[in-house]
Every structure is written in structure tokens, then in C-alpha cells.
Design a protein around this nucleic acid. Structure first.
Length: 567
RNA sequence: CGGGGUGUAGCUCAGUUGGCUAGAGCACUACGUUCGGGACGUAGGGGCCGCUGGUUCAAGUCCAGUCACCCCGACCA
């Protein structure tokens, strides 16, 4: 491709709106342009990369027996009502205003299940893996970081249909392996974490992550290999437990202690003996949640424990109504109203605790959870912290920010049951199809690759994602010998199957060098009079700036050799 | 949805207590010179100062409203 005949609008300056490196570079190198918040156009150069990613996805999905579909983005709302997800998705789903009854699909479990219901009637027709690479629409409240969080984006989503839970395990593992191959082929430095299933429903789920400060997810990782999204991460911290000879419960004044830290400072209590209480309204019912003093409630865990995402912290008025005190003096004993009390696992059956007295300015000490109050249930509710021992081998946990590239779910029968996708098994009984759901954010692969592969001059592409294999930089095309050689080499390399970007612009050397580094094609072939006098051209490797002067006659052999290593 | 910020040329930005025909650099067009790390000269083109209303002799500048975009938070499969 000749630069003069190809639309590559590079930018010299960093666009003011872009903050994360991948966003800046995708704009500067002419890969994408923003049209509105969370809505992007792919320009020719970026679209080449996008297609390379899509090819890899397609190859690996086909390799595990996936069959490619193309499902509609416009969906009848009825089908979403049947699965209860109009409400669950809430504002995230786009609704069509001038054609009521249609929505823009944020994902495709419903449509897949609809087709399964239509045509899958026997165990003989299972298993199936159905996938597509298609545009999704989500009304994100806050799109950000370029293509990392968009309102319109491309997803590779696949769905497995099985007759048994063992079958689901198999389909799930096929995806797990396929995803590892996909991200490895894309040269991404990724890791896999245990994750929450959230509103998707289902049991097991794992996420594919890359570590990045631009990420919105937080993960706990440990040298043992333990890795989990902070939403579900646990540690093997010892429980508070019971002390011998816990004295009777006793109220004491704490007029100037509103926080756990105040109590530690003013009264010298052991941090572990303090218990804090927060009140949430869960499914319209008040619940007092008791945790170690300085632990943080993990709302995702709360959601799993109660099986609902309809909860919120109680208002100050509600606090006073239910407990008899304001925030800072609340505890599990002597509550004004009889409300449900749950506690974090670390407090299981603990005693000698300090907590609020439900009377402003007073706390209780020597609380025994077995003696002084009734805990309705214990759950894992706390957020893991840096340095805690991991649950696998007790090695210290590190907390890192990460970008989610892909997510695989064992869905189970939530959708097949609500939409009536049943099959007849061998024994003649009717059973719901057991499903899995697996997604990859296509644009995120590209943004993540750039996050991990760039320097101050631009993007550093590698095979196979690079938009072109080779970049010919011809310096001073007014020179006959430069022009002739460049044209000859361009034609030779194209004929031999290389994808070549040939900078044939009448621009100064500096402009071309800088654009070449910005665009970041792995090898630059620099053709200038200086080297041509010796019958040579210069090869510059983008990644490490390594330069080699090579005889022109050996060029084809040189790149064929490189190519054979990559393809 | 809460908090903060920004809207002036294609891009990055300046524009004072309201005051002449609204500016710079880069980009763009023409001609000439230059040609291995973002060249130079000369001459040009390009503006609904986000939008609407108000105050004023006079508004890019002040006031009110509104829209868009960015950041932090909330939310998010």
C-alpha cells in the first residue's frame, strides 16, 4: 500500500481528551477517531488490525468446533422480558423510541436460547458451540479510556449447549484453552482470575486480565499462582476466635470516638477485637452487617450471599430508626428494632468484641456473639487486602489493577428454563439445555496490546497483529536511485506475499521516520542515497531500534526467513 | 446520578479590568530552495468564539439557561 493512496491521518500532538497511552496512540497513529462519547470509527489502518484479531478469534473458535452465526443487534423486547433481564439490565440497555418493542442487544444469551428452543429437541443434537463476532450496544453511564469502555463495541461471544454438567465442563474447558491460545497469539501478557458471575447468573466464571493502571478491575494475585478478582478474592487470615474468660458485657462512654481508629487511639483496643456494623436495606429489609473493625464490605460478596443486587446502605434516618443510634455508635446488641444480623466469617462465634451500644456516645465491650446476640448467618463479606496470606499456600497477596479482556461463564439452565429450551434425553425425560457463555472484547485486545507494547515514540507492533509486515521509508524521492530502488523493492516484496506500507510521500526524512515509529510496523526498510551507493538498504527493527545494513539482493531472503518464524 | 474541569481555525492553545478588522504554532494551498530524525522563504485560504437568551453604547470576555466532551466517584456481564 502506498502511503499517498492510503488514509493515515497521524497526529503530531497528543489529543487533549486522551489520557491513557493506548487511547492517545490509537488516535495519533490514525487507527481510530472518536465520534461521540464511547463511539468510535475505525480508520483503514486500525481496521486492518481489527481484522487480524478477528481472524485469530475465528480460527481458534472454529478449532474447538464453534459454528459462526451473525445475530441481530435489534431484538424484540419480549424475549428479554421473559428472562427478566429488561429489569436486570436497566439503563444499560438501549431502547428504540420510535419503534416500541425493540431494544439494542447488549449481549445475546436470549437470542441464542431462542434458536436453541426452536430447533434443538434431542440429546442427539447436542453439544453445540455457537458463536459470533458482532457489535454490542451498552448505554454505559461513563464511557472512558478510548476503546476500553464504549457504548458500541465488537464482541466475540459464544455459547455452549450441553446435555449435562459434565458436558458443560468440557465446553467450558475448551473455551478456556481456546482463549489462552487467542491471547497468546495476540502476544498479550495476560493472567486468569476467578470472578463473580454478577447479573449473568450461573456458577463458575473466570476472567482473562492484563495488568494495567488503565484498568477498572482490581485483582488479588499471589506468588502461589492464586489469582482472583477482588470481588471474589479470599485469604487465609485466621478468624478472631474466642478468648477464655470473657468478662460480662459492659457499656462505656466514648463521646469522642466516631471511628474504629478513634477507638484504637483513645482506648488502646486491639484492632482485631473491634467489630463494626453497617446497615443495608436488602430487598427492602434492613440487615445489620457485622465485620472486623477495619475490614471493608465487599458488595459483590453481599450480592452473592443474598442472591440479589437490590440493596443499598441505609439512610441516616433509617439507621436511627432501626438501631437507636447514629453511625459510629451502632452494634449488634440492644438494637431498637428487631432486624436480621449477619456477620463476616472472620467473626464466627467470636467473643470479647467491642462494638457500638446503639446509643450515641457509648460502646459495649466484652461482647460475645454466642451469648449477647443472635447472628442469623455468617458469610464471607470482607474485601481482601494487600499482604494477606493467599488461600492456596499462604503467600502474600498483591493487589493490582487490571483490564478485563474476556470472561467465561458456566451459566447452567437460567436461560433455557426461562425461555423453554428443553431437549429429550436418552431416557425420554425432558431437560433444560445446560449452557455456557463466553465473551471477548475485540477492541480491548488491541488497546491492551498497545498498553503493553509502546514507547515514547509510538506503538510497537509485532506479528500477527501488525497492520503491515514491512514499512518502506524512502528518503528523498527526488533522487532517481532512491525512487527506483524503493519502487522495485515495494513491488518485489508485495509479489512475494508481504504486506508492505510504502511511504512514497514527498516529506522530509524526519517526518517519515517519526510517522514510521508512531505507526510502529515491526521492520522499517530505510532507503537512502547514503547506503545505496554501497548497494545496501538499512533495516530498522522497531522494537529495539536495532539497525542492520543489508545488501539489496539479500533482502527477500532476509524477510522470508523472518516470516517463516512467524507463520 | 453526585463532584470537578473544558468548549475560540483541522490539531494544540493564547486572548488582561468588556473596547479597534479575534490571534500564535503546527497543519493546509501556490511558487521557489532544501532532502537521513517533525526544514526554509514568499504569498495565500481557513472562525456562528458550543448553542439560546439577557445586561450594555459595546460581549470571545459579564449574567442565566442549555448542550457536548474529559476527569474522579457511583454504576457496570
Amino acid at each position: 500500500m502506498r502511503f499517498t493512496e492510503y488514509f493515515i491521518p497521524t497526529l503530531k500532538e497528543v489529543p487533549a481528551d486522551a489520557v491513557v497511552p493506548s487511547h492517545q496512540l490509537m488516535l495519533r497513529a490514525g487507527l481510530v477517531r472518536q465520534v461521540s462519547a464511547g463511539v468510535f470509527s475505525w480508520l483503514p489502518l486500525g481496521f486492518r488490525v481489527l481484522n487480524k484479531v478477528i481472524n485469530i478469534l475465528r480460527e481458534e473458535m472454529n478449532a474447538i468446533g464453534g459454528q459462526e452465526f451473525l445475530l441481530p443487534a435489534l431484538n424484540p423486547i419480549e424475549i428479554w422480558e421473559q428472562t427478566g433481564r429488561v429489569e436486570a439490565m436497566g439503563d444499560v440497555m438501549f431502547h428504540i423510541k420510535n419503534r416500541t418493542g425493540l431494544v439494542l442487544a447488549p449481549t445475546h444469551e436470549e437470542i441464542i436460547t431462542y434458536h436453541a428452543k426452536q430447533h434443538i429437541h434431542s440429546y442427539k443434537e447436542l453439544p453445540q458451540i455457537w458463536y459470533q463476532i458482532q457489535t454490542k450496544f451498552r448505554n454505559e453511564p461513563r464511557p472512558k479510556s478510548g476503546v476500553l469502555r464504549c457504548r458500541q463495541f465488537i464482541m466475540k461471544d459464544s455459547y455452549s449447549l450441553d446435555t449435562s454438567w459434565e458436558g458443560l465442563d468440557e465446553s467450558y474447558n475448551k473455551h478456556l484453552e481456546a482463549y489462552k491460545k487467542i491471547f497468546s497469539r495476540c502476544k498479550l501478557n495476560f493472567f486468569i482470575v476467578g470472578a463473580s458471575s454478577g447479573a449473568m447468573g450461573g456458577s463458575k466464571s473466570q476472567e482473562f486480565m492484563i495488568q494495567s493502571d488503565a484498568g477498572e478491575d482490581v485483582c488479588a494475585i499471589a506468588p502461589s499462582g492464586y489469582a482472583a478478582n477482588l470481588e471474589v478474592a479470599t485469604s487465609s487470615l485466621p478468624p478472631v476466635g474466642r478468648k477464655e474468660n470473657c468478662p460480662p458485657i459492659e457499656k462505656f462512654p466514648t463521646p469522642n470516638a466516631k471511628t474504629i481508629d478513634d477507638l484504637i487511639e483513645q482506648f488502646g483496643f486491639d484492632e482485631n477485637s473491634l467489630a463494626k456494623s453497617v446497615v443495608y436495606i436488602i430487598d427492602s429489609e434492613p440487615v445489620l452487617i457485622l465485620m472486623r473493625g477495619n475490614d471493608e464490605l465487599n458488595e459483590t460478596k453481599l450480592q452473592s450471599a443474598f442472591g440479589t443486587n437490590k440493596f443499598r446502605p441505609a439512610t441516616p434516618e433509617e439507621l436511627l430508626d432501626f438501631t437507636g443510634a447514629n453511625a459510629g455508635s451502632i452494634g449488634p446488641v440492644n438494637l431498637k428494632a428487631k432486624i436480621k444480623i449477619v456477620a463476616d466469617n472472620l467473626l464466627k462465634d467470636a467473643n470479647c468484641l467491642v462494638s457500638g451500644a446503639n446509643e450515641d456516645g457509648f460502646h459495649l465491650k466484652n461482647i460475645d456473639l454466642l451469648r449477647d446476640c443472635k447472628i442469623d448467618a455468617y458469610y464471607d463479606l470482607r474485601t481482601v487486602r494487600e499482604g494477606e496470606p493467599c488461600p492456596i499456600a499462604g503467600t502474600p497477596i498483591k493487589i493490582v489493577k487490571a483490564i478485563e479482556l474476556g470472561h467465561i461463564f458456566k451459566l447452567g439452565t437460567k436461560y433455557s428454563e426461562s425461555l423453554g429450551a428443553y431437549f429429550l434425553d436418552k431416557d425420554g425425560t425432558s431437560k433444560p439445555i445446560i449452557m455456557g457463555s463466553y465473551g471477548i472484547g475485540v477492541e480491548r485486545i488491541i488497546a491492551c496490546y498497545i498498553e503493553q507494547n509502546h514507547d515514547e515514540n509510538g506503538i510497537i507492533w509485532d506479528y500477527p497483529l501488525t497492520p503491515f509486515d514491512l514499512h518502506i521509508v524512502a528518503i528523498n524521492l527526488k533522487s532517481e536511485i532512491v525512487k527506483e530502488t524503493a519502487e522495485e523493492l515495494y513491488s518485489l516484496l508485495c509479489k512475494n506475499g508481504f504486506e508492505v506500507l510504502y511511504d512514497d510521500r514527498d516529506e522530509s526524512a524526519g517526518v517519515k521516520f517519526n510517522d514510521a515509529d508512531l505507526i510502529g510496523i515491526p521492520y522499517q526498510i530505510i532507503i537512502g542515497e547514503r547506503n545505496l551507493l554501497e548497494g545496501k538498504v538499512e533495516i530498522k527493527k522497531r522494537r529495539n531500534n536495532e539497525r542492520t545494513n543489508l545488501e539489496i539482493s539479500k533482502l527477500l531472503e532476509y524477510f522470508n526467513d523472518i516470516k517463516s518464524k512467524y507463520y
